[in-house]
């Protein structure tokens, strides 16, 4: 197993390729995908278009097409989640970090497909994979929110279910703006694509049990949610992750 680790977007990327390391040019092209998203969308970099929009120096409508299309995508998800997911911070700033990490992972995955049939990409707790390792499906542990060195269970990336994303109150409390009292402390979502997994995880975490039921019914996802009272809920497809 070859593991390539690098820093980007304020977090860390871990890339696994069972058949050995990718060549330098391939690794560079993958790191470039993340750097490119970061340059456009980082609110930590005052030169980024998103920072200029936040300051009022640049009109959103005057931003480049990628920024506008990404904003449109985020608005579409706001509609699809009935407002549980939103690109608008409570202070009015447009923050697209809720979709940008997953979009970067998606694009990096497309690039990875050109270089290897088997790979696993982990970015700040979100996972996207292709193929297998030593003939077995990729296995991903789900962190126990009560003890981050322990696992709630393990999920398997198989078939079309290639993406897993976890949203929670721990670690880095970004882009989750709750709509009411805290119902969930951690929500893990498996989906065929990583943007769906990430957005639905964020939306459920921000919402309540009604949002959970509505989103699991309307989106093609498997979900394990840890409630604030410590109990677990799992959809049929996610039960095997946590035993019982």
């Amino acid at each position: 197993m070859s593991v390539h680790v690098f820093d980007t977007m304020g977090t860390v990327v871990s890339l696994r390729t069972p058949a050995g390391p990718l060549d330098d040019a391939a690794l560079e092209s993958i790191e470039d995908v993340f750097r490119s998203f970061d340059r456009r969308f980082s609110l930590y970099d005052e030169r980024s278009p998103l920072s200029r929009i936040a300051r009022g120096d640049l009109a959103l409508t005057a931003a480049d097409a990628v920024v506008r299309e990404t904003y449109a995508l985020a608005l579409d998800w706001r509609t699809r989640t009935d407002g549980a997911f939103t690109p608008h911070r409570p202070d009015g700033v447009v923050d697209l970090s809720g979709v940008v990490k997953a979009l970067a992972m998606h694009d990096a995955g497309t690039e990875l497909d050109r270089h290897s049939p088997d790979w696993l990409l982990t970015v700040g707790g979100d996972v996207l994979g292709r193929g297998s390792t030593d003939g077995s499906a990729w296995r991903v542990g789900v962190v126990d929110p009560d003890a981050r060195d322990r696992l709630l269970g393990t999920a398997t990336l198989s078939g079309t279910r290639r993406a897993l994303a976890t949203s929670g109150v721990a670690e880095r409390g970004q882009h989750i703006w709750r709509r009411g009292p805290e119902t969930f402390v951690q929500v893990t979502v498996a989906a065929d694509d990583v943007v769906t997994a990430d957005v639905i995880a964020t939306a459920i975490t921000a919402g309540d049990l009604e949002d959970l039921d509505r989103l699991t019914a309307s989106a093609d996802v498997d979900v394990v949610a840890v409630l604030a009272d410590g109990t677990l809920r799992a959809t049929p497809g996610a039960r095997a992750w946590v035993g019982r």
Partner: peptide, 21 residues
């Protein structure tokens, strides 16, 4: 909730959790 697994006992290649810095 089944018994929490220690990472050592699980054969995993990755971990999904809340975004870390």
């Amino acid at each position: 909730r089944s018994e929490a697994l220690t990472a050592q006992s699980a054969s995993i290649q990755s971990v999904s959790g809340a975004t870390y810095t």
